[in-house]
Design a protein around this nucleic acid. Structure first.
Lengths: 314, 314
DNA sequence: TTGTAAGCGTTATCAT
DNA sequence: ATGATAACGCTTACAA
Protein backbone atom coordinates (compact mmCIF):
# COMPACT_ATOMS: atom_id res chain seq x y z
CA UNK A 1 0.00 0.00 0.00
CA UNK A 2 1.59 3.16 -1.19
CA UNK A 3 1.24 6.11 1.13
CA UNK A 4 1.69 9.81 0.74
CA UNK A 5 5.42 9.56 1.41
CA UNK A 6 5.93 6.99 -1.30
CA UNK A 7 4.14 9.25 -3.71
CA UNK A 8 6.30 12.18 -2.67
CA UNK A 9 9.46 10.20 -3.22
CA UNK A 10 8.34 8.80 -6.57
CA UNK A 11 7.27 12.23 -7.79
CA UNK A 12 10.35 13.95 -6.42
CA UNK A 13 8.38 16.38 -4.28
CA UNK A 14 7.56 16.78 -0.61
CA UNK A 15 4.67 15.22 1.24
CA UNK A 16 3.08 18.61 1.73
CA UNK A 17 2.90 19.06 -1.99
CA UNK A 18 1.25 15.69 -2.37
CA UNK A 19 -1.21 16.58 0.34
CA UNK A 20 -1.92 19.85 -1.41
CA UNK A 21 -2.67 18.09 -4.65
CA UNK A 22 -4.85 15.63 -2.78
CA UNK A 23 -6.90 18.42 -1.30
CA UNK A 24 -7.02 20.68 -4.33
CA UNK A 25 -5.09 23.48 -2.75
CA UNK A 26 -4.11 26.43 -4.83
CA UNK A 27 -0.39 27.29 -4.93
CA UNK A 28 0.78 24.11 -6.59
CA UNK A 29 2.57 24.44 -9.91
CA UNK A 30 1.01 22.52 -12.72
CA UNK A 31 4.25 20.79 -13.38
CA UNK A 32 4.53 19.27 -9.89
CA UNK A 33 0.85 18.58 -9.79
CA UNK A 34 1.14 16.41 -12.88
CA UNK A 35 4.14 14.61 -11.46
CA UNK A 36 2.22 13.85 -8.31
CA UNK A 37 -0.81 12.70 -10.24
CA UNK A 38 1.19 10.35 -12.36
CA UNK A 39 3.03 9.00 -9.32
CA UNK A 40 -0.34 8.25 -7.77
CA UNK A 41 -1.33 6.49 -10.93
CA UNK A 42 1.92 4.55 -11.09
CA UNK A 43 1.85 3.43 -7.48
CA UNK A 44 -1.89 2.84 -7.47
CA UNK A 45 -2.34 5.21 -4.58
CA UNK A 46 -5.41 5.02 -2.34
CA UNK A 47 -5.91 7.76 0.24
CA UNK A 48 -6.57 6.39 3.71
CA UNK A 49 -9.45 8.13 5.40
CA UNK A 50 -8.67 6.66 8.78
CA UNK A 51 -5.48 8.68 8.74
CA UNK A 52 -7.30 11.77 7.53
CA UNK A 53 -9.81 11.35 10.31
CA UNK A 54 -7.14 11.12 12.97
CA UNK A 55 -5.28 14.06 11.60
CA UNK A 56 -8.40 16.19 11.38
CA UNK A 57 -9.91 14.88 14.57
CA UNK A 58 -13.15 14.04 12.83
CA UNK A 59 -15.03 10.86 12.07
CA UNK A 60 -17.47 12.34 9.55
CA UNK A 61 -20.19 10.34 11.21
CA UNK A 62 -23.27 11.44 13.12
CA UNK A 63 -25.43 9.17 15.25
CA UNK A 64 -29.20 9.28 15.07
CA UNK A 65 -30.77 7.80 18.18
CA UNK A 66 -34.28 6.45 18.66
CA UNK A 67 -36.05 3.62 20.46
CA UNK A 68 -37.02 1.55 17.39
CA UNK A 69 -36.23 2.05 13.76
CA UNK A 70 -39.45 0.34 12.74
CA UNK A 71 -41.51 3.35 13.76
CA UNK A 72 -42.19 5.07 10.43
CA UNK A 73 -42.49 8.35 12.26
CA UNK A 74 -38.85 8.19 13.36
CA UNK A 75 -37.87 6.70 10.07
CA UNK A 76 -38.84 9.77 8.13
CA UNK A 77 -36.72 11.89 10.45
CA UNK A 78 -33.85 9.52 9.84
CA UNK A 79 -34.33 9.74 6.12
CA UNK A 80 -34.13 13.53 6.24
CA UNK A 81 -30.98 13.31 8.32
CA UNK A 82 -29.31 10.88 5.92
CA UNK A 83 -30.12 13.05 2.97
CA UNK A 84 -28.85 16.22 4.56
CA UNK A 85 -25.73 14.58 5.98
CA UNK A 86 -24.70 13.40 2.56
CA UNK A 87 -24.63 17.01 1.43
CA UNK A 88 -21.82 17.57 3.90
CA UNK A 89 -20.14 14.28 2.99
CA UNK A 90 -21.17 12.93 6.34
CA UNK A 91 -22.76 9.61 7.17
CA UNK A 92 -25.38 8.53 9.64
CA UNK A 93 -25.13 5.59 11.98
CA UNK A 94 -28.33 4.27 13.41
CA UNK A 95 -28.71 3.59 17.12
CA UNK A 96 -31.70 1.75 18.52
CA UNK A 97 -32.05 2.23 22.27
CA UNK A 98 -35.25 0.30 23.00
CA UNK A 99 -35.77 3.00 25.61
CA UNK A 100 -32.73 1.78 27.53
CA UNK A 101 -30.59 4.39 29.24
CA UNK A 102 -27.39 2.35 28.96
CA UNK A 103 -27.74 2.41 25.20
CA UNK A 104 -27.96 6.18 25.27
CA UNK A 105 -24.88 6.32 27.46
CA UNK A 106 -23.02 4.18 24.95
CA UNK A 107 -23.72 6.71 22.23
CA UNK A 108 -22.60 9.55 24.44
CA UNK A 109 -19.39 7.67 25.08
CA UNK A 110 -18.84 7.25 21.37
CA UNK A 111 -18.96 11.01 21.11
CA UNK A 112 -16.49 11.31 23.95
CA UNK A 113 -14.18 8.86 22.23
CA UNK A 114 -14.51 10.69 18.94
CA UNK A 115 -16.09 7.76 17.12
CA UNK A 116 -18.81 10.17 16.08
CA UNK A 117 -18.89 13.93 15.57
CA UNK A 118 -22.37 14.58 16.89
CA UNK A 119 -25.60 13.06 18.15
CA UNK A 120 -29.21 13.57 17.25
CA UNK A 121 -31.54 12.30 19.95
CA UNK A 122 -34.96 11.79 18.44
CA UNK A 123 -36.10 10.69 21.87
CA UNK A 124 -34.17 10.41 25.11
CA UNK A 125 -34.51 8.69 28.42
CA UNK A 126 -31.56 10.26 30.21
CA UNK A 127 -31.95 13.52 32.07
CA UNK A 128 -31.01 16.62 30.18
CA UNK A 129 -28.31 17.30 32.78
CA UNK A 130 -26.64 14.00 32.03
CA UNK A 131 -26.74 14.63 28.32
CA UNK A 132 -25.51 18.19 28.75
CA UNK A 133 -22.43 16.98 30.54
CA UNK A 134 -21.34 15.42 27.26
CA UNK A 135 -21.80 18.50 25.17
CA UNK A 136 -18.17 19.44 25.72
CA UNK A 137 -17.26 16.51 23.48
CA UNK A 138 -19.36 17.52 20.52
CA UNK A 139 -22.69 18.86 19.35
CA UNK A 140 -25.88 17.18 20.55
CA UNK A 141 -29.31 17.98 19.20
CA UNK A 142 -32.63 17.18 20.83
CA UNK A 143 -36.16 17.14 19.47
CA UNK A 144 -37.55 18.78 22.56
CA UNK A 145 -37.59 22.46 23.32
CA UNK A 146 -35.18 23.17 26.14
CA UNK A 147 -32.84 25.83 27.47
CA UNK A 148 -29.61 23.90 27.36
CA UNK A 149 -29.10 22.13 24.09
CA UNK A 150 -29.86 22.95 20.47
CA UNK A 151 -33.15 21.53 19.28
CA UNK A 152 -35.56 21.18 16.41
CA UNK A 153 -39.04 20.58 17.60
CA UNK A 154 -42.69 20.37 16.77
CA UNK A 155 -44.93 21.92 19.37
CA UNK A 156 -47.08 18.98 20.38
CA UNK A 157 -49.29 21.22 22.45
CA UNK A 158 -50.16 23.37 19.47
CA UNK A 159 -50.65 20.35 17.24
CA UNK A 160 -53.01 18.75 19.72
CA UNK A 161 -54.84 22.02 20.33
CA UNK A 162 -55.39 22.42 16.62
CA UNK A 163 -56.96 18.98 16.38
CA UNK A 164 -59.09 19.51 19.48
CA UNK A 165 -60.35 22.91 18.38
CA UNK A 166 -61.35 21.47 15.07
CA UNK A 167 -63.18 18.55 16.62
CA UNK A 168 -65.03 20.80 19.05
CA UNK A 169 -66.00 23.10 16.24
CA UNK A 170 -67.32 20.11 14.30
CA UNK A 171 -69.53 19.30 17.24
CA UNK A 172 -67.75 16.33 18.75
CA UNK A 173 -68.43 16.04 22.48
CA UNK A 174 -66.60 13.01 23.74
CA UNK A 175 -63.07 13.31 22.49
CA UNK A 176 -60.40 10.81 23.40
CA UNK A 177 -56.75 10.45 22.51
CA UNK A 178 -53.98 7.93 22.71
CA UNK A 179 -50.44 8.40 23.95
CA UNK A 180 -47.53 6.08 23.74
CA UNK A 181 -46.04 6.65 27.15
CA UNK A 182 -48.00 8.19 29.94
CA UNK A 183 -45.33 10.69 30.94
CA UNK A 184 -43.41 11.20 27.76
CA UNK A 185 -42.63 14.63 26.47
CA UNK A 186 -45.46 14.66 23.96
CA UNK A 187 -47.93 12.92 26.26
CA UNK A 188 -47.57 15.79 28.69
CA UNK A 189 -48.00 18.38 25.97
CA UNK A 190 -51.12 16.64 24.75
CA UNK A 191 -52.54 16.37 28.25
CA UNK A 192 -52.02 20.08 28.68
CA UNK A 193 -53.94 20.79 25.49
CA UNK A 194 -56.68 18.36 26.48
CA UNK A 195 -57.02 20.22 29.77
CA UNK A 196 -58.06 23.34 27.88
CA UNK A 197 -61.32 21.64 26.92
CA UNK A 198 -64.40 22.58 28.94
CA UNK A 199 -64.37 20.55 32.14
CA UNK A 200 -67.41 18.52 31.16
CA UNK A 201 -65.63 17.43 28.00
CA UNK A 202 -62.61 15.95 29.70
CA UNK A 203 -62.76 12.20 30.14
CA UNK A 204 -60.01 10.30 31.91
CA UNK A 205 -61.47 7.11 30.49
CA UNK A 206 -60.79 8.32 26.96
CA UNK A 207 -57.09 8.80 27.46
CA UNK A 208 -55.54 5.63 26.10
CA UNK A 209 -52.01 4.56 26.86
CA UNK A 210 -51.07 2.25 24.05
CA UNK A 211 -48.39 1.28 21.56
CA UNK A 212 -47.40 2.62 18.19
CA UNK A 213 -47.92 -0.30 15.87
CA UNK A 214 -50.74 -1.54 13.72
CA UNK A 215 -51.48 -4.61 15.79
CA UNK A 216 -51.42 -2.66 19.02
CA UNK A 217 -53.89 -0.29 17.39
CA UNK A 218 -56.13 -3.21 16.66
CA UNK A 219 -56.13 -4.38 20.25
CA UNK A 220 -56.61 -0.85 21.51
CA UNK A 221 -59.72 -0.66 19.34
CA UNK A 222 -60.99 -3.82 20.96
CA UNK A 223 -60.46 -2.33 24.40
CA UNK A 224 -62.15 0.87 23.40
CA UNK A 225 -65.17 -0.95 22.07
CA UNK A 226 -65.48 -2.75 25.37
CA UNK A 227 -65.94 0.49 27.26
CA UNK A 228 -69.41 1.19 28.56
CA UNK A 229 -69.35 4.70 27.11
CA UNK A 230 -67.67 5.27 23.78
CA UNK A 231 -65.82 8.37 22.62
CA UNK A 232 -67.10 10.03 19.47
CA UNK A 233 -63.64 11.02 18.25
CA UNK A 234 -60.11 9.81 18.90
CA UNK A 235 -56.79 11.46 18.21
CA UNK A 236 -54.21 8.74 17.67
CA UNK A 237 -50.44 8.75 18.18
CA UNK A 238 -49.44 7.85 14.66
CA UNK A 239 -50.63 6.54 11.33
CA UNK A 240 -49.89 2.88 11.88
CA UNK A 241 -51.62 2.79 15.23
CA UNK A 242 -54.56 4.63 13.76
CA UNK A 243 -54.74 2.26 10.81
CA UNK A 244 -54.93 -0.62 13.27
CA UNK A 245 -57.84 1.02 15.04
CA UNK A 246 -59.50 1.79 11.75
CA UNK A 247 -59.17 -1.79 10.55
CA UNK A 248 -60.71 -3.16 13.71
CA UNK A 249 -63.52 -0.61 13.54
CA UNK A 250 -64.27 -1.81 10.04
CA UNK A 251 -64.31 -5.42 11.22
CA UNK A 252 -66.73 -4.57 13.97
CA UNK A 253 -68.96 -2.43 11.81
CA UNK A 254 -68.08 0.83 13.55
CA UNK A 255 -68.50 3.61 11.02
CA UNK A 256 -65.86 6.30 10.70
CA UNK A 257 -66.61 9.15 11.24
CA UNK A 258 -70.32 8.59 11.91
CA UNK A 259 -69.83 6.42 14.99
CA UNK A 260 -66.34 7.42 15.94
CA UNK A 261 -64.12 9.95 14.17
CA UNK A 262 -60.37 9.47 13.88
CA UNK A 263 -57.42 11.82 13.61
CA UNK A 264 -53.85 10.59 13.41
CA UNK A 265 -50.51 12.23 13.85
CA UNK A 266 -48.10 11.79 10.94
CA UNK A 267 -49.98 12.28 7.69
CA UNK A 268 -48.10 9.50 5.99
CA UNK A 269 -49.30 7.01 3.41
CA UNK A 270 -51.48 5.07 5.81
CA UNK A 271 -53.61 8.10 6.60
CA UNK A 272 -53.81 8.91 2.93
CA UNK A 273 -55.06 5.52 1.90
CA UNK A 274 -57.66 5.29 4.63
CA UNK A 275 -58.66 8.91 4.14
CA UNK A 276 -57.86 9.76 7.73
CA UNK A 277 -57.74 13.35 8.92
CA UNK A 278 -54.17 13.76 10.03
CA UNK A 279 -51.75 16.16 11.60
CA UNK A 280 -48.97 16.72 9.13
CA UNK A 281 -45.56 16.79 10.77
CA UNK A 282 -42.51 17.98 8.82
CA UNK A 283 -40.48 14.97 9.86
CA UNK A 284 -37.92 14.83 7.08
CA UNK A 285 -37.27 18.48 7.64
CA UNK A 286 -36.64 17.84 11.31
CA UNK A 287 -33.93 15.42 10.31
CA UNK A 288 -32.42 17.90 7.89
CA UNK A 289 -32.41 20.79 10.31
CA UNK A 290 -30.88 18.77 13.08
CA UNK A 291 -27.99 17.80 10.84
CA UNK A 292 -27.54 21.48 10.04
CA UNK A 293 -27.44 22.20 13.76
CA UNK A 294 -24.73 19.61 14.21
CA UNK A 295 -22.62 20.65 11.26
CA UNK A 296 -22.90 24.42 10.95
CA UNK A 297 -22.56 27.35 13.29
CA UNK A 298 -25.19 29.40 11.55
CA UNK A 299 -28.17 27.09 12.09
CA UNK A 300 -30.35 28.02 15.05
CA UNK A 301 -32.75 25.98 17.14
CA UNK A 302 -36.22 26.26 15.74
CA UNK A 303 -39.81 25.21 15.94
CA UNK A 304 -41.31 23.53 12.89
CA UNK A 305 -45.01 23.91 12.17
CA UNK A 306 -47.60 21.17 12.15
CA UNK A 307 -50.69 21.33 10.00
CA UNK A 308 -54.09 19.71 10.23
CA UNK A 309 -55.08 17.93 7.02
CA UNK A 310 -58.79 17.31 6.98
CA UNK A 311 -60.09 14.16 5.35
CA UNK A 312 -63.09 11.91 5.50
CA UNK A 313 -62.51 10.43 8.94
CA UNK A 314 -63.84 13.48 10.81
CA UNK B 1 -6.44 16.48 26.06
CA UNK B 2 -4.21 14.05 27.76
CA UNK B 3 -2.95 11.23 25.60
CA UNK B 4 -1.39 7.92 26.28
CA UNK B 5 2.07 9.44 26.54
CA UNK B 6 0.99 11.92 29.17
CA UNK B 7 -0.48 9.09 31.17
CA UNK B 8 2.73 7.12 30.85
CA UNK B 9 4.79 10.04 32.07
CA UNK B 10 2.47 10.84 34.95
CA UNK B 11 2.35 7.21 36.04
CA UNK B 12 6.08 6.70 35.57
CA UNK B 13 5.65 3.84 33.11
CA UNK B 14 5.99 3.32 29.38
CA UNK B 15 3.29 3.89 26.80
CA UNK B 16 3.17 0.18 26.12
CA UNK B 17 2.18 -0.48 29.68
CA UNK B 18 -0.55 2.11 29.47
CA UNK B 19 -1.79 0.53 26.26
CA UNK B 20 -1.77 -2.84 27.95
CA UNK B 21 -3.86 -1.59 30.80
CA UNK B 22 -6.21 0.04 28.33
CA UNK B 23 -6.73 -3.22 26.53
CA UNK B 24 -6.83 -5.50 29.55
CA UNK B 25 -3.76 -7.43 28.62
CA UNK B 26 -2.38 -9.96 31.05
CA UNK B 27 1.23 -9.44 32.12
CA UNK B 28 0.79 -6.12 33.88
CA UNK B 29 1.67 -5.97 37.56
CA UNK B 30 -1.10 -4.84 39.78
CA UNK B 31 1.11 -2.11 41.15
CA UNK B 32 1.70 -0.45 37.76
CA UNK B 33 -1.83 -1.05 36.71
CA UNK B 34 -3.08 0.97 39.66
CA UNK B 35 -0.61 3.73 38.94
CA UNK B 36 -1.82 3.93 35.36
CA UNK B 37 -5.43 3.89 36.41
CA UNK B 38 -4.95 6.73 38.84
CA UNK B 39 -2.99 8.74 36.31
CA UNK B 40 -5.90 8.34 33.92
CA UNK B 41 -8.20 9.53 36.64
CA UNK B 42 -5.97 12.46 37.51
CA UNK B 43 -5.51 13.65 33.95
CA UNK B 44 -9.09 12.91 32.97
CA UNK B 45 -7.97 10.64 30.19
CA UNK B 46 -10.23 9.88 27.24
CA UNK B 47 -9.13 7.23 24.74
CA UNK B 48 -9.30 8.44 21.16
CA UNK B 49 -10.89 5.91 18.88
CA UNK B 50 -9.78 7.71 15.74
CA UNK B 51 -6.24 6.85 16.70
CA UNK B 52 -7.18 3.29 17.55
CA UNK B 53 -8.87 2.99 14.18
CA UNK B 54 -5.84 4.21 12.31
CA UNK B 55 -3.53 1.98 14.24
CA UNK B 56 -5.72 -1.06 13.74
CA UNK B 57 -6.69 -0.18 10.20
CA UNK B 58 -10.38 -0.56 11.01
CA UNK B 59 -13.31 1.78 11.10
CA UNK B 60 -15.67 -0.55 12.96
CA UNK B 61 -18.38 0.51 10.57
CA UNK B 62 -20.31 -1.49 7.97
CA UNK B 63 -22.47 0.04 5.25
CA UNK B 64 -25.88 -1.35 4.44
CA UNK B 65 -27.00 -0.35 0.97
CA UNK B 66 -30.51 -0.23 -0.48
CA UNK B 67 -32.59 1.93 -2.79
CA UNK B 68 -34.95 3.41 -0.19
CA UNK B 69 -35.01 3.02 3.54
CA UNK B 70 -38.77 3.49 3.62
CA UNK B 71 -39.36 0.04 2.22
CA UNK B 72 -40.26 -1.95 5.34
CA UNK B 73 -38.96 -5.06 3.65
CA UNK B 74 -35.43 -3.64 3.53
CA UNK B 75 -35.89 -2.06 6.91
CA UNK B 76 -36.25 -5.36 8.64
CA UNK B 77 -33.02 -6.54 7.06
CA UNK B 78 -31.37 -3.37 8.29
CA UNK B 79 -32.70 -3.91 11.76
CA UNK B 80 -31.23 -7.39 11.86
CA UNK B 81 -27.90 -6.05 10.67
CA UNK B 82 -27.83 -3.31 13.32
CA UNK B 83 -28.61 -5.75 16.05
CA UNK B 84 -25.99 -8.24 14.97
CA UNK B 85 -23.33 -5.59 14.35
CA UNK B 86 -23.69 -4.28 17.88
CA UNK B 87 -22.72 -7.71 19.15
CA UNK B 88 -19.34 -7.18 17.52
CA UNK B 89 -19.16 -3.55 18.70
CA UNK B 90 -19.66 -2.47 15.12
CA UNK B 91 -22.00 0.14 13.77
CA UNK B 92 -24.10 0.39 10.65
CA UNK B 93 -24.25 3.35 8.32
CA UNK B 94 -27.21 3.57 6.05
CA UNK B 95 -26.84 4.26 2.35
CA UNK B 96 -29.80 5.06 0.12
CA UNK B 97 -28.95 4.65 -3.54
CA UNK B 98 -32.29 5.42 -5.18
CA UNK B 99 -31.18 2.85 -7.72
CA UNK B 100 -28.35 5.13 -8.85
CA UNK B 101 -25.09 3.45 -9.80
CA UNK B 102 -22.93 6.43 -8.80
CA UNK B 103 -24.23 6.08 -5.25
CA UNK B 104 -23.15 2.47 -5.21
CA UNK B 105 -19.74 3.46 -6.51
CA UNK B 106 -19.43 5.98 -3.70
CA UNK B 107 -19.93 3.24 -1.14
CA UNK B 108 -17.40 1.04 -2.85
CA UNK B 109 -14.96 3.92 -2.72
CA UNK B 110 -15.56 4.32 0.98
CA UNK B 111 -14.47 0.73 1.36
CA UNK B 112 -11.40 1.42 -0.73
CA UNK B 113 -10.56 4.43 1.43
CA UNK B 114 -11.10 2.44 4.61
CA UNK B 115 -14.00 4.57 5.81
CA UNK B 116 -15.91 1.35 6.23
CA UNK B 117 -14.87 -2.23 6.87
CA UNK B 118 -17.45 -3.95 4.72
CA UNK B 119 -20.56 -3.56 2.59
CA UNK B 120 -23.89 -5.30 2.54
CA UNK B 121 -25.71 -4.76 -0.73
CA UNK B 122 -29.38 -5.49 -0.19
CA UNK B 123 -29.88 -4.68 -3.85
CA UNK B 124 -27.41 -3.63 -6.46
CA UNK B 125 -27.42 -1.96 -9.84
CA UNK B 126 -23.76 -2.37 -10.71
CA UNK B 127 -22.54 -5.48 -12.46
CA UNK B 128 -21.14 -8.15 -10.26
CA UNK B 129 -17.79 -7.78 -12.03
CA UNK B 130 -17.57 -4.15 -11.02
CA UNK B 131 -18.42 -4.94 -7.43
CA UNK B 132 -16.01 -7.85 -7.38
CA UNK B 133 -13.16 -5.60 -8.37
CA UNK B 134 -13.54 -3.91 -4.99
CA UNK B 135 -13.47 -7.07 -2.95
CA UNK B 136 -9.73 -6.71 -2.49
CA UNK B 137 -10.47 -3.73 -0.23
CA UNK B 138 -12.81 -5.53 2.13
CA UNK B 139 -15.68 -7.98 2.47
CA UNK B 140 -18.80 -7.42 0.38
CA UNK B 141 -22.00 -9.38 0.83
CA UNK B 142 -24.86 -9.67 -1.64
CA UNK B 143 -28.40 -10.87 -1.25
CA UNK B 144 -28.31 -12.75 -4.53
CA UNK B 145 -26.94 -16.18 -5.08
CA UNK B 146 -23.76 -15.91 -7.15
CA UNK B 147 -20.41 -17.57 -7.70
CA UNK B 148 -18.15 -14.68 -6.85
CA UNK B 149 -19.15 -12.98 -3.63
CA UNK B 150 -20.49 -14.17 -0.29
CA UNK B 151 -24.27 -14.00 -0.07
CA UNK B 152 -27.30 -14.63 2.04
CA UNK B 153 -30.35 -15.19 -0.04
CA UNK B 154 -33.92 -16.25 -0.20
CA UNK B 155 -34.76 -18.34 -3.22
CA UNK B 156 -37.43 -16.26 -4.88
CA UNK B 157 -38.13 -19.03 -7.33
CA UNK B 158 -38.96 -21.47 -4.58
CA UNK B 159 -41.00 -18.90 -2.72
CA UNK B 160 -43.04 -18.10 -5.80
CA UNK B 161 -43.42 -21.75 -6.70
CA UNK B 162 -44.76 -22.49 -3.25
CA UNK B 163 -47.40 -19.79 -3.59
CA UNK B 164 -48.34 -20.87 -7.11
CA UNK B 165 -48.62 -24.55 -6.22
CA UNK B 166 -50.87 -23.67 -3.35
CA UNK B 167 -53.11 -21.47 -5.47
CA UNK B 168 -53.38 -24.11 -8.17
CA UNK B 169 -54.23 -26.73 -5.62
CA UNK B 170 -56.94 -24.45 -4.23
CA UNK B 171 -58.44 -24.29 -7.67
CA UNK B 172 -57.42 -20.83 -8.82
CA UNK B 173 -57.17 -20.61 -12.60
CA UNK B 174 -56.20 -17.08 -13.48
CA UNK B 175 -53.23 -16.26 -11.36
CA UNK B 176 -51.42 -12.95 -11.65
CA UNK B 177 -48.48 -11.42 -9.85
CA UNK B 178 -46.76 -8.11 -9.46
CA UNK B 179 -43.08 -7.30 -9.70
CA UNK B 180 -41.28 -4.14 -8.87
CA UNK B 181 -38.85 -4.02 -11.72
CA UNK B 182 -39.37 -6.00 -14.85
CA UNK B 183 -35.87 -7.42 -15.00
CA UNK B 184 -34.80 -7.39 -11.41
CA UNK B 185 -33.27 -10.41 -9.79
CA UNK B 186 -36.46 -11.50 -8.11
CA UNK B 187 -38.69 -10.60 -11.05
CA UNK B 188 -36.76 -13.07 -13.17
CA UNK B 189 -36.99 -15.76 -10.53
CA UNK B 190 -40.73 -15.24 -10.27
CA UNK B 191 -41.18 -15.31 -14.01
CA UNK B 192 -39.35 -18.60 -14.11
CA UNK B 193 -41.67 -20.07 -11.51
CA UNK B 194 -44.72 -18.68 -13.29
CA UNK B 195 -43.53 -20.37 -16.47
CA UNK B 196 -43.92 -23.74 -14.76
CA UNK B 197 -47.69 -23.29 -14.75
CA UNK B 198 -49.63 -25.14 -17.48
CA UNK B 199 -49.45 -23.06 -20.64
CA UNK B 200 -53.14 -22.24 -20.57
CA UNK B 201 -52.75 -20.72 -17.12
CA UNK B 202 -50.05 -18.23 -18.04
CA UNK B 203 -51.34 -14.74 -18.68
CA UNK B 204 -49.04 -11.95 -19.77
CA UNK B 205 -51.79 -9.51 -18.93
CA UNK B 206 -51.70 -10.58 -15.30
CA UNK B 207 -48.04 -9.75 -14.80
CA UNK B 208 -48.07 -6.32 -13.24
CA UNK B 209 -45.03 -4.09 -13.10
CA UNK B 210 -45.67 -1.72 -10.27
CA UNK B 211 -44.23 -0.02 -7.21
CA UNK B 212 -43.77 -1.09 -3.63
CA UNK B 213 -45.83 1.38 -1.68
CA UNK B 214 -49.36 1.51 -0.37
CA UNK B 215 -50.52 4.23 -2.72
CA UNK B 216 -48.98 2.55 -5.73
CA UNK B 217 -50.83 -0.58 -4.69
CA UNK B 218 -54.04 1.38 -4.70
CA UNK B 219 -53.50 2.63 -8.22
CA UNK B 220 -52.41 -0.79 -9.40
CA UNK B 221 -55.71 -2.11 -8.09
CA UNK B 222 -57.51 0.50 -10.14
CA UNK B 223 -55.63 -0.58 -13.25
CA UNK B 224 -56.33 -4.20 -12.57
CA UNK B 225 -60.04 -3.57 -12.17
CA UNK B 226 -60.08 -1.82 -15.52
CA UNK B 227 -58.90 -4.94 -17.30
CA UNK B 228 -61.45 -6.72 -19.42
CA UNK B 229 -60.60 -10.05 -17.85
CA UNK B 230 -59.75 -10.17 -14.17
CA UNK B 231 -57.35 -12.51 -12.43
CA UNK B 232 -58.77 -14.65 -9.64
CA UNK B 233 -55.64 -14.47 -7.52
CA UNK B 234 -52.67 -12.12 -7.29
CA UNK B 235 -49.28 -12.58 -5.68
CA UNK B 236 -48.01 -9.17 -4.63
CA UNK B 237 -44.45 -7.89 -4.12
CA UNK B 238 -44.76 -6.86 -0.49
CA UNK B 239 -47.17 -6.19 2.34
CA UNK B 240 -47.58 -2.47 1.82
CA UNK B 241 -48.31 -2.81 -1.87
CA UNK B 242 -50.73 -5.60 -1.13
CA UNK B 243 -52.45 -3.55 1.56
CA UNK B 244 -52.96 -0.80 -1.00
CA UNK B 245 -54.57 -3.24 -3.38
CA UNK B 246 -56.67 -4.68 -0.60
CA UNK B 247 -57.90 -1.25 0.47
CA UNK B 248 -58.93 -0.35 -3.05
CA UNK B 249 -60.65 -3.71 -3.49
CA UNK B 250 -62.64 -2.98 -0.37
CA UNK B 251 -63.59 0.45 -1.69
CA UNK B 252 -64.79 -1.05 -4.91
CA UNK B 253 -66.63 -3.90 -3.33
CA UNK B 254 -64.30 -6.58 -4.61
CA UNK B 255 -64.40 -9.46 -2.15
CA UNK B 256 -61.18 -11.12 -1.05
CA UNK B 257 -60.78 -14.02 -1.62
CA UNK B 258 -64.16 -14.73 -3.24
CA UNK B 259 -63.63 -12.37 -6.21
CA UNK B 260 -59.87 -12.11 -6.16
CA UNK B 261 -57.49 -13.82 -3.76
CA UNK B 262 -54.32 -12.11 -2.52
CA UNK B 263 -50.93 -13.33 -1.39
CA UNK B 264 -48.17 -10.99 -0.32
CA UNK B 265 -44.48 -11.39 0.19
CA UNK B 266 -43.19 -10.27 3.59
CA UNK B 267 -45.61 -11.52 6.27
CA UNK B 268 -45.28 -8.33 8.29
CA UNK B 269 -47.85 -6.50 10.35
CA UNK B 270 -49.85 -5.32 7.36
CA UNK B 271 -50.54 -8.85 6.18
CA UNK B 272 -51.40 -9.86 9.71
CA UNK B 273 -53.96 -7.13 10.22
CA UNK B 274 -55.68 -7.67 6.90
CA UNK B 275 -55.52 -11.44 7.28
CA UNK B 276 -53.56 -11.80 4.07
CA UNK B 277 -51.93 -15.08 3.12
CA UNK B 278 -48.28 -14.22 3.01
CA UNK B 279 -44.87 -15.59 2.23
CA UNK B 280 -42.80 -15.27 5.35
CA UNK B 281 -39.28 -14.12 4.67
CA UNK B 282 -36.63 -14.31 7.39
CA UNK B 283 -35.53 -10.73 6.80
CA UNK B 284 -34.00 -9.85 10.14
CA UNK B 285 -32.04 -13.05 9.93
CA UNK B 286 -30.73 -12.07 6.53
CA UNK B 287 -29.33 -8.92 8.10
CA UNK B 288 -27.78 -10.86 10.94
CA UNK B 289 -26.18 -13.47 8.74
CA UNK B 290 -24.74 -10.92 6.36
CA UNK B 291 -23.04 -9.15 9.24
CA UNK B 292 -21.61 -12.50 10.29
CA UNK B 293 -20.31 -12.97 6.76
CA UNK B 294 -18.60 -9.61 6.92
CA UNK B 295 -17.10 -10.03 10.35
CA UNK B 296 -16.19 -13.68 10.74
CA UNK B 297 -14.30 -16.22 8.72
CA UNK B 298 -16.45 -19.10 9.80
CA UNK B 299 -19.78 -17.90 8.40
CA UNK B 300 -20.67 -19.37 5.03
CA UNK B 301 -22.96 -18.16 2.29
CA UNK B 302 -26.38 -19.66 2.74
CA UNK B 303 -29.92 -19.87 1.58
CA UNK B 304 -32.63 -18.93 4.04
CA UNK B 305 -36.03 -20.60 3.79
CA UNK B 306 -39.30 -18.86 3.01
CA UNK B 307 -42.61 -20.17 4.30
CA UNK B 308 -46.17 -19.79 3.11
CA UNK B 309 -48.49 -18.58 5.88
CA UNK B 310 -52.07 -19.26 4.91
CA UNK B 311 -54.72 -16.79 6.00
CA UNK B 312 -58.17 -15.69 4.97
CA UNK B 313 -57.23 -13.96 1.72
CA UNK B 314 -56.90 -17.17 -0.27
C1' DT C 1 5.41 27.89 -4.66
C1' DT C 2 7.81 24.29 -2.00
C1' DG C 3 9.94 21.59 1.76
C1' DT C 4 10.96 20.23 6.67
C1' DA C 5 9.33 18.45 10.53
C1' DA C 6 6.20 18.15 14.17
C1' DG C 7 2.05 16.62 15.33
C1' DC C 8 -2.58 13.46 15.68
C1' DG C 9 -2.94 9.08 19.57
C1' DT C 10 -2.80 4.64 19.20
C1' DT C 11 -0.79 -0.44 18.65
C1' DA C 12 2.79 -3.79 18.18
C1' DT C 13 7.40 -5.68 17.70
C1' DC C 14 11.33 -6.80 19.83
C1' DA C 15 14.46 -6.56 23.15
C1' DT C 16 15.48 -7.08 28.07
C1' DA D 1 6.55 -7.95 33.25
C1' DT D 2 8.30 -3.72 31.03
C1' DG D 3 10.16 -0.29 27.93
C1' DA D 4 12.02 1.87 23.40
C1' DT D 5 10.77 2.74 19.31
C1' DA D 6 8.87 2.19 15.02
C1' DA D 7 4.89 2.00 12.58
C1' DC D 8 -0.18 3.66 10.98
C1' DG D 9 -0.88 7.75 6.95
C1' DC D 10 -2.28 12.02 6.94
C1' DT D 11 -2.36 17.60 7.85
C1' DT D 12 -0.27 21.84 8.78
C1' DA D 13 2.70 25.41 10.86
C1' DC D 14 6.68 27.51 9.80
C1' DA D 15 10.58 28.43 7.20
C1' DA D 16 12.64 29.19 2.94
Amino acid sequence: MANIRDIAKHAGVSVSTVSRVLNDYPYVSNEKKLKVLSAMEALNYIPNHLAVNLSLGKSRVIAVVFPWITNPYYLRILEGAIKQASKYAYHIIVIETHYEEPEELKVLDMLKHRSIDGIIFITKELSIETICSYEQYGPIVLMEKNDYLPYVFIDQYKAMKKALDYLVQEGYKKIGYSVHRKNGFSANARAKAYATLPKNMQYKAFVYVSGLSLMEGKSLAQNILNQSTLPDAIIVTNDAHCAGIYAEFQNRGIKVPEDIALISYENGELSLINDITSIDLPLAEMGERSVDLILTDTAKSEELPSKLIIRRST
